[in-house]
Design a protein around this nucleic acid. Structure first.
Ligand code: MN
Ligand code: MN
Ligand code: ZN
Ligand code: ZN
Lengths: 146, 146
DNA sequence: TACATATTTAAATTCATTACAATTTAATTT
DNA sequence: AAATTAAATTGTAATGAATTTAAATATGTA
């Protein structure tokens, strides 16, 4: 089953009309688990849907959020990011390459009695393993070169 | 020791010039552990500092962040919030009363090997204990009244 | 087909944050 | 003390993602 079919099936499950735009937005999110921005989605879909409006992307993603088809990731303080993976997981943004990585996490919160938790967002920032390696290599080259 | 003195001491520790504005912004944060917005701080200090500029609040908070005197809380997707408590703790925002509560948290993250973590932000949303009680009381009244 | 409803579009607006140049204040040097 | 330099503060304008509005288009049903 390709992403288009998967998106269509998910929309039908939720009782949401599976319009072309909705299918394509959801399929894009499923096939690009990189936490894209509205702009990313817009620019990608625009190529094949010439009259596409950015407002529609916003509306569609709002609808998806209400239906728990996507979750909003606010780790990047500039733009919102969207994730079709709605299972519990944390997000790590690299300060070098800006990439956002998923990670599994288990938390214990002793002092929230009587609180009703609706959503959890766990955001870490730092240097990803890849960029860390690159930095070390660069450092080694320098010390060898001199 | 009052908050003004505490703020002054903290600034001196960091080797930052303890100007009147800086002392007052930091003292406000120390005395209002409610995660205020820039607007909150600005409106409060404006009363005693007539020519205060909002830009200065932004600049001051940026400086504080660099010096690890405050941490930025991005739980409220509209406005940034600031916290003079820089120790590890999570934040819970009530969807009813909008209040932001601190909570202690312990997390294990098995799959981030080689990643260098610089900052952690843990945001929960839902209904706080107080609002939860209020809602239940309202429900009881209704069922008794009818 | 006709009509109501849902979806999509484009333009205008909002508003927190940032950029920047000008001014004021404080520290350092003559 | 005066002059010079550096730092802090101010006000205005610009930025840009997100929202609002209203109009256009598509879709389902009778
Ligand atoms: Mn994810
Ligand atoms: Mn806090
Ligand atoms: Zn990286
Ligand atoms: Zn509450």
């Amino acid at each position: 089953m390709d992403y288009i079919e998967a998106a269509q099936a998910l929309l039908q499950e939720k009782g949401v009309r599976a319009s072309t735009i909705r299918i394509n937005v959801l399929a894009y999110l499923l096939s690009h688990p990189t936490h894209p921005t509205v702009e990313h989605i817009y620019q990608a879909l625009r190529k094949s849907m010439l009259t596409l409006s950015k407002t529609t992307i916003y509306n569609t993603l709002d609808l998806f959020q209400q239906q728990n088809l996507v979750r909003v990731i606010n780790i990047d303080e500039k733009e919102m990011r969207y994730d079709a993976n709605t299972t519990e997981h944390g997000h790590f943004q690299c300060q070098e390459c800006k990439a956002i990585t998923d990670f599994t996490i288990r938390c214990s919160t002793p002092d929230l009695p009587g609180f009703q938790i609706a959503t959890r967002n766990i955001y870490y920032r730092g240097i990803c393993a890849e960029c860390q390696t690159k930095k070390e290599e660069l450092l080694n080259e320098k010390s060898n070169g001199n």
